[in-house]
Every structure is written in structure tokens, then in C-alpha cells.
Amino acid sequence: MTEIEAALIAQGVLYCGVDEAGAGPLCGDVVAAAVILDPSRPIDGLDDSKKLTEKKREKLFELIQERALAFAVARATVEEIDRINILKARMLAMTRAVNALAIEPHHVLVDGNRLPELQMPATAIVKGDSLVQSIAAASVLAKVTRDREMLEMDKRYPGYGFAAHKGYGTAVHLEALKALGPCEIHRRSYAPVKALLTES
């Protein structure tokens, strides 16, 4: 537990954790989640979603929704990412997630080293998804939501391999991009996609 988290608990401050998924991929929305955990209903095994198996993430996804005091998932779209850049889009998605919570937190703990625009005090925590349970829970909700969406996109836009690589710039994805060209959900501002559009 981090010092800030211990201090908030000691003062009885209601806080949420927030994190996002999908900054790196070449396509799809960036998804953020905010979670207020219930101290009386702990969830075992919470960790940075990238360190968990898909099976474990799916199980935790259900448990978080069952046991959290409040949770919300929000996004910034591909169009917004291309218009304002991925950093601002990540912050926007996190702001939206916090604002969508059914219970308003008095403090927000954010994964990383930057803070989105919020109405309440907030603290950025580097590697927060490994250190703070509520941020870990948010990372799980964001990643599972986005991964599920990429499975849907795989059906809608076959040939790119979205189900396997979830939109990341793997060799398979880059080959498909060259062969098929970008589809509707590709981020035009990202270098590999931009380069193809410039060539055509």
C-alpha cells in the first residue's frame, strides 16, 4: 500500500483508482476505467492487468463489477485520438471515467505521472497499477473491455488479426496493413498508418 493510500484510508477519504488501456495500439478507442473499491468486500489477486492471464482478468472483471462500491468505463474515440493526440485522449478518457462514477470520490489516484482534468484532488502514482488495488481494478476493467471490443472488430474487419494482437503493431498486423490498407478504426495519426496513407 502506498503512503498516500494509507493516509486517505486513515482520514476516511473516499477515493477511486483510474487507469486506461490502449495507448499503444494502432487502432481502436482508448478505454479508461475508474473504480471505488469496497473495503468490506476485498478482491484477491488484483494486479496490473498486463501481468495477469486473460483467464484471470476475465474472472476479476466480473468480481470487480460485483463487489466495487462504484465503477465506470469511458473512452476517447479514434477520431479524438487523431485530433488531439493520444496523451490528451488518454487524459480525456480518464476524466470521463471519473465523472461517470455513480458515487463521487473525494480524491483520485491515477496511474502514471500525469493528471487528467478533475473536479477533485488527485495524485499521480507511477506504476500505480501494481501498487494500488483500486488502480489495478481500473486497469483490469479497461483492458478487458478494450480486448473484448477488439474481438468484435476482428469479426467486423477480418484479415487484420485484431483478435490475436488487439491492435498492437505486431509484424502480422503491419503486414496486413500493407496488404489491405487501413480500415475505419485505424489511427491515422500513428506513424505506420500515416506512412501508408502518404504512399497511397
Rank of each mutant, 00 (worst) to 15 (best):
184 E>L: 14
124 A>L: 09
157 Y>C: 05
183 C>M: 12
179 A>G: 00
111 D>V: 02
160 Y>V: 05
84 I>T: 07
152 E>G: 04
166 K>T: 01
100 A>E: 12
74 A>R: 08
54 E>N: 09
28 G>F: 01
21 A>M: 07
7 A>H: 08
8 L>I: 05
69 L>M: 15
30 V>N: 00
151 L>V: 14
188 R>C: 07
124 A>Q: 08
117 E>L: 14
196 L>A: 01
75 R>F: 10
177 L>V: 09
55 K>F: 02
22 G>H: 06
121 P>G: 10
122 A>K: 03
3 E>S: 13
107 H>V: 07
187 R>E: 08
181 G>S: 12
11 Q>K: 15
138 A>R: 02
17 G>L: 06
41 R>V: 00
12 G>C: 11
186 H>W: 10
99 N>S: 13
50 K>Q: 09
127 K>G: 01
62 E>V: 15
47 D>Y: 01
58 E>T: 02
196 L>C: 07
101 L>T: 04
106 H>C: 11
118 L>G: 05
1 M>R: 14
143 K>R: 13
4 I>N: 11
103 I>Q: 13
168 Y>T: 01
140 V>W: 04
101 L>W: 04
46 L>C: 05
77 T>P: 09
46 L>S: 00
19 D>R: 03
32 A>R: 04
116 P>M: 09
7 A>C: 02
44 D>N: 13
24 G>T: 09
19 D>P: 11
100 A>P: 09
139 S>T: 04
43 I>H: 11
181 G>C: 13
4 I>D: 08
123 T>E: 10
31 V>D: 00
2 T>D: 15
34 A>K: 10
24 G>E: 11
46 L>I: 05
164 A>C: 09
49 S>I: 07
108 V>T: 06
152 E>N: 12
135 I>D: 00
158 P>T: 08
69 L>A: 05
175 E>H: 13
26 L>I: 10
195 A>R: 15
151 L>T: 08
72 A>E: 01
6 A>Q: 15
126 V>E: 09
44 D>P: 00
102 A>S: 15
43 I>P: 12
73 V>P: 05
105 P>C: 10
9 I>Q: 14
51 K>T: 14
188 R>Q: 14
67 R>N: 14
25 P>A: 07
57 R>W: 10
188 R>H: 13
148 R>D: 02
51 K>P: 06
140 V>F: 06
131 L>H: 12
162 F>T: 01
71 F>G: 00
94 M>S: 01
155 K>Y: 03
81 I>T: 05
161 G>C: 12
40 S>T: 14
116 P>V: 06
38 D>V: 11
131 L>I: 01
129 D>A: 05
195 A>H: 13
22 G>W: 01
65 Q>W: 06
173 H>A: 00
28 G>E: 00
76 A>Y: 04
179 A>T: 13
194 K>G: 00
70 A>L: 11
177 L>N: 05
49 S>D: 04
31 V>W: 11
44 D>Y: 07
132 V>F: 08
183 C>S: 15
112 G>V: 01
145 T>N: 08
95 T>G: 03
149 E>D: 13
